[in-house]
């Protein structure tokens, strides 16, 4: 029973990571650095609550989160692809933009600097934290399915082949007629939508938007993307690993066995270790981050 509760809690924490990391893998495989996941998630979380609040339907919230993530992704894509802005700078700007704008809109629509009013969401509050309560939430299913779906998209479809081609060798892809810019736009938009869904899950699960509620989760998803070596399935497993560590920390909270700060570090330390190549070097897509250079 304890194990079951542990697994349910892990899955609950992992869902937004899985959605955002799937987006991260797609974006980075196409050659665009996914520093922006945090911003997409935050934007998605806000638009989800905003639309749910005014329509009364969580489905409208989900749709709005997809749109919100996509709009931010479009700004990023236009800056990095059309205008060849440095991806790191543009990515940081998008994140700052998302933080600032959600704060501003929180004041504008809900006259608060900390949180929105409560919205319905998919789960009934007080229905427990077990699997039963979890699996009535369609976003949980989406989070579970997104990893195999992304793997299928990348490795089994023409679009996926093109994404991988433009991320590894854009000139070679272009020479055989792949519309490089268009593929990259689509990949970035898709990553914005997926990360936006991750934000929607967070906000609807907590039944409200709170200022800065993603709290670095987008960067954990980015860490999972890299630690999973840009492969959807490995990235998904990394998400589950990071979520399990968090769950363990929550369960051990009373015992003081391990300070929470050290558990927080786990995803980041593992990512650095992976990048340094101590256990199996993580090698990025060859054209990652290089859309912008003359």
């Amino acid at each position: 029973m304890i194990l079951l509760a542990f697994l349910a809690q892990t899955l609950r924490i992992a869902i937004p990571y899985l959605l955002a990391a799937a987006g991260g893998v797609i974006s980075e495989r196409s050659g665009l650095i996914a520093l922006t996941l945090e911003g997409y998630m935050l934007g998605g979380a806000f638009t989800a609550v905003w639309a749910s609040y005014y329509s009364g339907s969580p489905w409208a919230g989900v749709a709005a989160a997809v749109a919100g993530g996509a709009v931010l992704a479009l700004i990023y894509a236009v800056s990095a692809i059309r205008f060849r802005a440095d991806q790191v700078v543009a990515g940081i700007a998008i994140n700052l933009f998302a933080i600032g704008l959600t704060r501003y809109l929180l004041r504008l629509f809900f006259d608060s600097s900390s949180n929105s009013p409560r919205v319905a969401g998919f789960t009934v509050q007080g229905s427990g934290t077990g699997f039963g309560a979890l699996l009535v939430n369609p976003l949980v299913w989406l989070g579970i399915l997104v990893i195999p779906a992304t793997a299928w998209l990348l490795y089994r479809t023409p679009f996926g082949l093109r994404v991988r081609a433009v991320g590894e060798h854009p000139t070679a892809a272009a020479s055989v007629g792949v519309p490089v810019a268009r593929v990259r736009y689509l990949a970035v938009l898709l990553s914005g939508m997926l990360a936006g869904l991750g934000g929607a899950y967070l906000a609807l699960d907590q039944h409200q938007f709170t200022d800065g509620m993603t709290a670095g989760r987008g960067f954990i998803a980015l860490a999972a993307t890299i630690f999973g070596r840009w492969d959807p399935v490995r990235a998904g497993l990394a998400c589950l690993l990071f979520a399990a560590a968090e769950t363990l920390q929550i369960q051990l909270q009373g015992s003081q066995a391990l300070p929470s700060q050290f558990v927080e570090m786990i995803p980041y330390v593992l990512t650095i270790v992976a990048l340094a190549g101590v256990v199996g070097r993580a090698v990025a897509p060859a054209a990652l981050g290089k859309t912008a250079i003359e």
């Binding site: 205008f83 440095d86 700078v89 543009a90 700052l96 933009f97 600032g100 704060r103 501003y104 004041r107």
Partner: peptide, 19 residues
């Protein structure tokens, strides 16, 4: 919070307009 947005706009605009 308006200025947070403006700061982000300045960064993004400089990054996009340099090239």
């Amino acid at each position: 919070q308006m200025v947070d947005v403006l700061q982000a706009v300045v960064i993004l605009a400089v990054a996009t307009s340099v090239p």
